[in-house]
Design a protein around this nucleic acid. Sequence first.
DNA 1: CAGAATTCTCGTAGGGTATACGAGAATTCG
DNA 2: CGAATTCTCGTATACCCTACGAGAATTCTG
Lengths: 263, 263
Amino acid sequence: MSERRSGEGQPDKTLALLWRNHRHPMADESVDRKRGAGRRPSLNVDEVVQAGIQLADDQGLAAASMGGLAKELGVGTMTLYTYVPSKDELLDLMVDQVLGERELPGPGEPRPEDWREQVELYSRQTRAMFQRHLWLSQVSTIRPPVGPGMLAGREYLLSALLGLGLGALETNTAALAITTYVDSAASLEAESQLVERATGQSNDAWWYERNDLWETYFDVDRHPAMTTIWHADGYQSSTREAAADSYRYGLDRLLDGIENTAL
Amino acid sequence: MSERRSGEGQPDKTLALLWRNHRHPMADESVDRKRGAGRRPSLNVDEVVQAGIQLADDQGLAAASMGGLAKELGVGTMTLYTYVPSKDELLDLMVDQVLGERELPGPGEPRPEDWREQVELYSRQTRAMFQRHLWLSQVSTIRPPVGPGMLAGREYLLSALLGLGLGALETNTAALAITTYVDSAASLEAESQLVERATGQSNDAWWYERNDLWETYFDVDRHPAMTTIWHADGYQSSTREAAADSYRYGLDRLLDGIENTAL
DNA sequence: CAGAATTCTCGTAGGGTATACGAGAATTCG
DNA sequence: CGAATTCTCGTATACCCTACGAGAATTCTG
């Protein structure tokens, strides 16, 4: 993973960058430089962010280093620091950008009627996002970029749950529980593919390589439950399918539980 | 996050290291060198692993580099490679060690009667493990060390669910869903504290620093649900408490859902 | 008891990372 | 045409992992 994240420097500057393409009440020239004297920039923030995403998609997050990205853009490494204060900030911008790519209906836009269908949509879009951008799984979400993309996602999920009549605090709590589950599972799924790509070995092949375990080290007496499941064909052959099934199952059960408390 | 993990080299050698302290049917001297000619080792694997855990606990995973660990042990960096084939293998050993520290009753040992209480115990022990070893949150779990510690955890959880009479495949699926939820949440909790430690700033302070967001950029029309929750006091002041509540809530709902399908 | 065999020890070297600093180049304003 | 402004980017630093191979320590063999 990544080590430390997110600008400790000036939150104002960070927020201004995140919201750079949104008009807001106090719209001053905090980001848009008034074009006057001075050398003309050869790039702009959006180009840098987009190129960063592209590079991370194609070659992995590690390849999207400041040096690598600069080479891709045909400029010197330090030139990037004209557009972005640090690598961490750049990552924030990349993340909020792709968070905003999810196609989630905003307020007033048409959406599924059933609340579960609405949550389902959030789940699908989020998983698809992780699939498009596997590197997301390597980025910490503890202090997320507080930009338009992230807020749109939270807004959508909360609006889906509001209809349940759960009370403000419980609604928020439920939304958090759902995002924890969905985002974590989607992240694990993406990470799994990343590992397959990086090692050139499927996860199934990896497990198979460890067959020795069962023959040599596995002690049936110490593991009766696993043995029982095994003999009852409780293990799926495909790691991937097992993960997908367990995701489906867990989300359905979680929503069942939430629905029940709402009655 | 960490980049790539887990020995692609020889699974046999890896397994032998992981199970080094367990007697097994085919017990040969694959690990224990027959003590004969040759210089005496100044360390052993367990010491290296233990020192690695200690160092990662105290100074963070980054500080537990091969160089740093060697300095701590008073040997040259390359000396460590006598005991452990690579840094990734060492990490596997550290992880399985702490997985095994969880106090989960084995087969035949006394345990809570209620299955939910048993799952609860798994949850408590796992969260406590992450709290003792915050660096676990930075380690990928996609290809876990297939050692005694990991197997004991899976065995316990499966045994807790077997009593529900769910059928082998569904039991396994449910167990996977539970570990995904519990492990992910515990990992996020630990990561959160790690970030606080690394930045010297509490997460609450971090959010507070972004108060500008609400005044300057937040658009009420685009975020009616968030606004509603806000006005109904649906947001908790403490990030940490909010996370804990949502964890509790989500786990309870998940177990509710599982219980219902079992009827 | 000497040399051979074996095993552990560890310095060096190489290719990777983010970014502080400051000099130089390009552009426009007065 | 200078001065002011802004963008460009080479250099230098301090880390990371580990392949390689020479040297040190110990015991076995005769």
